[in-house]
Nucleic acid binder design. Structure first.
Lengths: 192, 192
DNA sequence: TCGCTTGTCTAGCGGTGCTAGGATCGATTC
DNA sequence: GAATCGATCCTAGCACCGCTAGACAAGCGA
């Protein structure tokens, strides 16, 4: 069975190569530049090879989104675990969230702006996405306030962060005032 | 000069036809379905005619976005003017904003999700967009709270609304709980 | 070594945004 | 009223897109 195992290893390696290349190209030139032709050229295989790994471009975006969700959840947990007290955790969480979105715009797009064919907010939602929301919930649930459902509070806080992230990146909000916006948001929303 | 005037009238009418058709098609089947071929077929002119009115598809999207901004500003002002007191105005504003986004998803996309080639947050920003932000500022400035810059507060509140609108529409948030989310948002952010 | 499966590539389909260049229509002038 | 000439519009085509059928070659097991 060694031959088959080797082939599977090679195949898995190539799949990682495809995703890493797609992600790199998207971060460099935007997702519009990630065409199947350019992508296949960069990985030094022909176009049909892509379709032996993914159903199509949408599924490639979705795979990058899942990668990103895992990384983001880790980044959020790392940020909150280094902070003392509920309030500080929420501030750290907000900063880490916006920081991730700013540093990985293409990945953030894959997760929340583009259609990666992923299910959301239901039982078919892939684990990395659920886990990302869970990472938010862990810190935000602490400061929801009396009588406020933690899930609902997390949704609202998350929506605010998402709005700040996307509007800033799209040039709708000047990027300089990000920090005071975060402070205002935490100040008002978090019941210390 | 009557001939020239008639031609200009006809030209303006055709431009309105292009925009109305693009908008209708986008609302019915999404912006992906708005191709220059389909659009030209629906207006019963050939493709190049589109390019005698607009530089390209991007500029058509931008024109629809400006139309939408004007309408949205009017809708927001209508909603707030019918409410009594700062707090009620903000609630009405938030509901009207989310309602507009839900009822005109394609127009909302043109304004905030797609690239319509429009300038934002600087001196080149078209008047309708500035006015839309002004409509938000009028009601939100009242409840920013002491020592908080009204513009900054408006940005944060707007970002939260934008996040709720986009995440809901993309299926990231279940649509049922929109109303409690609005109440929570206004409760926490507005300093009565 | 042979046959066969598995994997990869070439070539091409129908679609996209956009444009060059020719045809036609109609207003202006004689 | 006819001829001219410029504005206006369309046909045809470019390069590119996502995706796939079918030919071909490489490497496996017998």
């Amino acid at each position: 069975m060694s031959v088959q195992e080797r082939k599977e290893r090679e195949r898995a390696a190539r799949e990682r190569l495809i995703l890493a290349t797609a992600r790199e190209l998207a971060e460099q030139q935007g997702w519009d530049a990630v065409t199947t032709r350019r992508l296949s050229e960069r990985i030094e295989y022909s176009q049909p090879v892509l379709y032996s790994h993914f159903r199509g471009k949408r599924e490639i975006i979705g795979a990058v989104a899942l990668e990103g969700a895992t990384e983001m959840a880790a980044a959020l947990r790392a940020a909150t675990s280094a902070a003392d007290g509920p309030r500080a955790r929420v501030t750290a969480l907000a900063r880490a969230y916006l920081d991730f979105a700013a540093r990985n715009p293409a990945v953030y797009d894959a997760m929340f702006q583009l259609d990666g064919g992923l299910a959301f907010a239901n039982e078919d939602t892939p684990q990395p996405l659920k886990d990302g929301f869970a990472a938010l919930l862990e810190s935000l649930g602490e400061v929801a306030g009396d009588g406020v459902h933690p899930g609902l509070f997390t949704e609202v806080f998350w929506a605010a962060l998402h709005g700040l992230a996307t509007l800033t990146r799209a040039g709708r909000l000047p990027p300089e005032d990000t920090e005071p916006r975060v402070e205002l948001l935490v100040d008002r929303l978090a019941m210390v």
